[in-house]
Design a protein around this nucleic acid. Structure first.
Lengths: 251, 251
DNA sequence: CAGTGGTCTAGACCACAAA
DNA sequence: TTGTGGTCTAGACCACTGG
């Protein structure tokens, strides 16, 4: 029996209204974890919507992890879990903008190196080309937030401009100096503590907790990375946040 | 002019084929950052697909951050950025399964408390009800990985079972003891270091770097959390990984 | 086999942006 | 006013699951 009906004259589109109705039925226990939802065709009949619209709505719920569709079997309510979470790390200037702070960039040094640090060799980086190594400090309202170490296989003879290294995104710098747009990326986030070098730049004691982010960039058909970044974020100044909430709007 | 055509007899569906074609044109520079894509109607004509199918394909590229659609204006290639990244934290048992390790759970203690730690008060937790506080140790192949502290507003007079606290997901435990299914969640991830208590349980030195995850769970229409979790993961054993790759398959 | 979700079509109306 | 993306429809065929 349908208690909630779709208002086709509402500003909120039908597929969204239905998503909220179904979400509500899941939260309230009308549909319990493991239960199958009515078939897409049945839902279409029940709420007087086309199957296409029903599917769009189900996609939303599936993306949010509330339901899970299985071809040939049906669509089932997912076992409740708020322990699964996704964090999004925006670019630094976006984060600063959101926090209303003034981003600052300081190039600490830039040099070519021949001998690679151990962790770069493990990542498959080779020294058949010169390696450009530079280090940057990120600040928020002049407070140091993060130290970045970046390594690039420098295959093009272009001059290295301080300004460029200071302000440009990593992928752009790589593009400039290798003529290759990196299209594969691997990021690994973990916890570490400051060595002396980072501690000084970040103005924190030795051994201070930091988020350590390692970025490895590849071009297609290439097992050797074109660029590697190693970033340290002050644990007391930088964190990742994720919110899970019911669908918004008048229901 | 169309060089790539859609093979409607292929096992890979047309919308996916088109997604790969467009992705490739973006990577190769045929479509540059800022450029508008052809309109959905035009793409449909060009590749002999319905607009619905074109849209499904564009949705994929939009989700992956390659393009961005603006109503009334067009669809534009996004400025290239591999610095934006999302990390997914799965439930502990899922992570263990993926790593082929045996998850272990040990209940360290469970007790009712009256005096709340400062950080819980800041989160809006109140003591109008009894607070159930328990601590759990997570292990992988008997190696300690994480320490969890969990606080629940215990509104129902149900008995507290050790087994339940040891194995059940946080949301389930809350469900049992408050009769409320938490549906809002806030997670915050940052870096910290071990205090004495955590160091002993994790078998690491004092001040060892750890990922600190704070989880706050709410029911609807409730500004006071029903449950708060504070988790510490060994930085040397636990990390978050994210991969960004081109679309797969023969294309 | 019947029922399910996955994909596709051709056409329609709307909201919005820009000229 | 024109062209764009956003939404919706009614119908079709397919692949998969399970009896």
């Amino acid at each position: 029996m349908t208690l909630n009906k779709i208002n086709k004259n509402s500003f909120t589109p039908p597929f969204y209204q239905l998503a909220k109705i179904l979400e509500q039925k899941i939260f309230s226990g009308d549909f319990k974890p493991g239960d199958p939802l009515p078939s897409e065709t049945d839902l279409g009949h029940e709420y007087e919507l086309s199957r296409t619209t029903v599917r769009k709505c189900l996609n939303i719920l599936a993306e949010r992890g509330l339901i899970n569709a299985q071809q040939g079997r049906g669509t089932f309510v997912t076992r409740q879990s708020l322990d699964r979470v996704t964090f999004t790390m925006e670019e630094f200037n976006v984060v600063m903008e959101n926090q209303g702070k003034e981003p600052g960039y300081k190039l600490v040094f830039a040099r070519f190196i021949k001998k690679l640090p151990e962790f770069l060799i493990k990542l498959g980086m080779t020294t058949d080309q010169r390696i450009l190594y530079y280090c940057r400090l990120l600040m928020a309202d002049n407070e140091p937030i993060a130290v970045e170490h970046k390594y690039i296989r420098h295959t093009v003879g272009k001059p290295v401009l301080e300004n460029e290294l200071q302000y440009k995104a990593f992928a752009e710098v790589i593009m400039t100096h290798t003529n290759n747009l990196p299209i594969k990326s691997r990021m690994e986030l973990t916890a570490a503590r400051t060595e002396e070098f980072e501690a000084n730049l970040l103005k924190v004691p030795l051994g201070f907790p930091v988020l350590q982010l390692q970025q490895t960039l590849y071009t297609i058909d290439d097992n050797s990375p074109v660029g590697v970044g190693l970033f340290y974020y002050r644990g007391d100044q930088y964190s990742l946040v994720s919110d899970i909430q019911p669908l918004k709007g008048e229901g």
